[in-house]
Design a protein around this nucleic acid. Structure first.
Lengths: 233, 233
DNA sequence: CACGAACAAAAAGTCAGACTTATATGTCAC
DNA sequence: GTGACATATAAGTCTGACTTTTTGTTCGTG
């Protein structure tokens, strides 16, 4: 999850990708593979591989006799984990964080409802454990430990929903929660009300009470949105 | 949106991608680029580009001295439009369609609520036009024309939500709706109740009534889920 | 027999150069 | 201005040689 610079082409991507998503090359900009290859001091074949990957992310389009043109932002595959990471690391981080939090607010309540119906005994146990972990680390400036349990909690919910599309958002949620703790100001201990809500969600899932699990999770996500409004109105 | 076989590497992808997502190569299977290059009668450089793209979709992992190994299904980037198309064309189409419909049921109501708040006058007009189009084509076996308006309607909602993550799901919704009309049995005209709901949603968005827009859209998606239960229980 | 170090083989990774192909654009006749 | 045609350009493709990493084996030593 740290550096993904596997191979030369990966290294190039790690440099070009953030530059494009940051808007250094506005939509319509034209790059040439030969020039890029020289700039990054790699062979054309390596550069071509990097361009192919950017193309599969819908960040650029490669056309004969024209070059590699940057596509408009609206066409980017914003669900690509790599793209998400690049954008979160860039300048429009706040905007990106809001988009993702809104996405969470739509997905997670539904996922919790499904989890209440489909969760296995093992998943219920895991969930309870996470909730307890959150409680025990919710006071005394143990933000890092709290974050671990918080991320784990939401991951279990998403996985237990039984929907692969939901499950795949675990990484996104992890990024958002992690960002809140690390980047944004978070001097104080987490909101006790939020902690209680997590405990209640775990209980609702355990008891198979789908509507209640959904409603409680919606309260959590509403809280997350409000928190965002306070920080960046 | 039809054939994306741009260039040789694209052609290879169009063949290898569906094979992998269909499960022809079970997770852990090992492929070798040289062998693949021979099989598809392309040069190694072209095959390498194809592998890089598959790698960026988290479908495979390329490691030295071992080869190109197929990753487990749970790690695939199921939000990649290409991957979605491949899987919808494959054997587990019903399962995939259900996953996507559940996703819709989570996203679209929230998107409609946001649209009611953020939609521009132009978007409202477009939405009304779509709804009227749906009404006028809802009877008399004009399924194709109806589909066009239906897709347009949902696209406008997603775009008007102002959330880029939602907006990017327009293609997914289009695939799902299109699949329902084309692949699954759809002899009869669309459900009149559904048509009415769309008209009401358009009105709610126009009036800026977010809760109503959300609730009505939820009714639509619930209907879609029920429809799915009837077809594939 | 267990354990570790040295070694060899295998496959991806990298590079350089020559060639092909599509295509945007400019030119010229009409 | 419009059409056909020529040309330059940059991506696309192929090939062959070389490098690097990693795995599994072999062999020596405790």
């Amino acid at each position: 999850m740290t550096t993904r610079g596997r191979g030369l082409h990966g290294h190039v991507l790690e440099s070009l990708g953030p530059a494009i998503t940051a808007g250094d090359y506005p939509p319509g900009s034209v790059l040439r593979t030969d020039e890029l290859a020289q700039r990054f001091e790699v062979s054309r074949s390596v550069m071509r591989e990097a361009v192919r990957v950017l193309e599969s992310m819908y960040l650029v389009e490669s056309r004969r006799r024209v070059g590699v043109t940057v596509r408009p932002k609206s066409e980017w595959n914003v669900y690509d984990p790599q793209v998400i990471r690049w954008r979160l690391a860039g300048a429009d981080r706040p905007h990106q964080l809001r988009s993702l939090t809104v996405l969470r607010s739509a997905i997670e309540p539904v996922a919790a409802g499904l989890a209440a119906r489909h969760a296995t005994a093992e998943q219920c146990a895991e969930l309870t454990e996470c909730a307890l972990g959150m409680v025990s680390t919710s006071r005394g400036q143990q933000l890092e430990a709290y974050l671990v349990h918080d991320v784990a909690f939401h991951r279990v919910i998403l996985n237990a929903s039984g929907n692969e599309m939901f499950a795949r958002l675990g990484d996104v949620v992890a990024e958002v929660l992690s960002g809140r703790t690390h980047h944004d100001v978070m001097f104080e201990d987490p909101d006790p009300a939020a902690v209680t809500l997590h405990v209640k969600v775990a209980a609702a899932v355990r008891e198979g009470d789908a509507p209640r699990a959904e409603r409680l999770t919606r309260e959590i996500t509403v809280g997350a949105l409000q928190e965002l409004d306070v920080l960046a109105p």
